[in-house]
Structure formats: C-alpha cells, structure tokens
Design a protein around this nucleic acid. Structure first.
Lengths: 131, 131
DNA sequence: CAGTATCCCGGTCGATACTG
DNA sequence: CAGTATCGACCGGGATACTG
C-alpha cells in the first residue's frame, strides 16, 4: 500500500517552501483563494463588468462584500476601477495584466471542478452512506 | 481605454456558468479553495505525511482545524487515511488519484504566487502610499 | 446607478486540556 | 503519537438603510 505512493508523488515543489508559516506569500495566497476573489477574477477575465453586472453574475453576494473584495483586489493590483463620466456615472471593473495572469490558473481550477465535481459529490454520498 | 479590453478578454468559459448562485459546484469549489485545504493538498502532493508532520509543515494550524479539514477532504474523496498497525499506531495521509489531479492546478496557483507575490506586495504598497 | 454605513449573527478559528 | 472536547474570541458576511 505504501509503494504506489512513490509512483504518484510529484517532484518536491520548492515554491511550497514560500508558504511555510508566516510568509508574506500566504497573505497573497489567501487573497486569491478565499470564497469570493476567484469568482470575481474569473468573471472579469471574460471582459470588464459594471458593479451590478458583476453582482448578478456571481449571485448571492451582498453589495457590501462585493465592494470590499473589489477594493482589496484593486489594492493588490489585480483589477482596475474605471469611471466613465456620464449621468449617472458608469463605473466598470477590469483585470489588469497581472489580474489576467492569475485568472488563468484560477480558470484551470474551475475547470477541474466542472470536470470532477460530480465525482466529489459521489464520494461524499458514498462516505455518508457508510454510516 | 475600452479597446484593449477586447485584446485581453479570454474566451467565455462555459464552466463559469456552473458557478452561478446555488450550484453544487460552488460547494466543491469552496472546499478546495478556502484557507487551509489548498495547503494540505499541495503538501500531500509531495508524498504522504503523518498528522504531526503535516501540522509542522503547514505551520500555524491548530490540531483541531487540521483534523477537521482532513476529515472533509477524506469525505470528498481527495485524501485517504491509512493506519499502519504498530505501537503507537502510525497514521498517514495521502492523496487519492482525484486528490492528485486537483493538486496540479493548485500547484500552478501556488507557483503564480511565488512568481508574482512580490509584485502584488509592491502594488499594495503603492496603493497605500497614495493616501 | 454605485456604492458606503451600520448593526448583528453565525461560524470558523485558535488555545488549551484531555483520551487511547 | 493521533487525535477529540470544550470554550471563547474574532470577523466574514448578510440585511437594511442611507448618500451622491
């Protein structure tokens, strides 16, 4: 049973060291994982959106939380807020180059969920039936 | 300013629809993102570990939370708990095939942080100086 | 429309102590 | 070693109301 561990072990990732304990990388990592940021980033990867468009597309996110996350991501240099002068003013959010680059791995992750989500749900059901 | 949006817009991702509102995919997504699960998964991708090895390598995670996450991930069919009879019994955790497959996109994400983390920190500093 | 302000609840997290 | 039990603190997040 221990042998096939070897077979499927990935080469040690030197980057994982950066995540030990109180490393600043953890802070960044927490920002782009977390519950809402990935959704925002992935949605914006398809094109810029206005505040309420974003809210509606994500669904079930309160305006307060959305605006908080938007501010955080702007601070991180991942998204950009643009005001077009008009009445009422149109505000839209778009990814920066850096935001665009992080959206790619996030989309892969989302793709994984799309491909394996049912298998996970099935595993949960199997596990729960065990009891 | 609107034009280059087109240039860097990714093709619409049909999988992102799976995340609208109360979709079960969101539940799965929440399990593999979140604060701790990605760290656990990535660490185990380098090979099976025992409980305290895992705790020490992750750092700053309480035993309670670690054991909770471990149970959740086992329920999701991503990790496997193995007891070797001995005194004291040795318990180790390893990724399943499915866990191994999700670890790959997670490692890419971590790699992104390793590569761009400093730029994010710099952006934060720039933003904060603005005030 | 595009948010901010306020209040408050629930769950998550961590610390500590304990068991087999 | 490998956890579980208990407890309290904290804060993310929702509801609502409000501003420009």
């Amino acid at each position: 049973m221990g042998e096939n561990f070897e077979a499927k072990r990935l080469p040690r990732n030197r980057h994982s060291d950066l995540f030990h304990s109180e490393c600043p990388g953890r802070i960044v990592f927490d920002h782009i994982t977390g519950r809402w940021a990935p959704l925002v980033l992935v949605k914006l990867a398809e094109g810029p959106l206005r505040f309420y468009e974003l809210r509606d597309q994500i669904g079930r996110i309160s305006e307060k939380v959305l605006s908080e996350k938007l501010r955080l991501l702007a601070r991180d240099g991942l998204i950009e807020r643009t005001v077009e002068p008009a009445t009422p003013p149109r505000v839209s959010y778009a990814l920066t180059d850096m935001g665009y680059s992080v959206a790619k791995p996030l989309r892969r992750l989302m793709r994984w969920v799309a491909d394996h989500g049912d298998a996970v749900l099935a595993a949960q059901a199997r596990h729960d039936d065990q009891n």
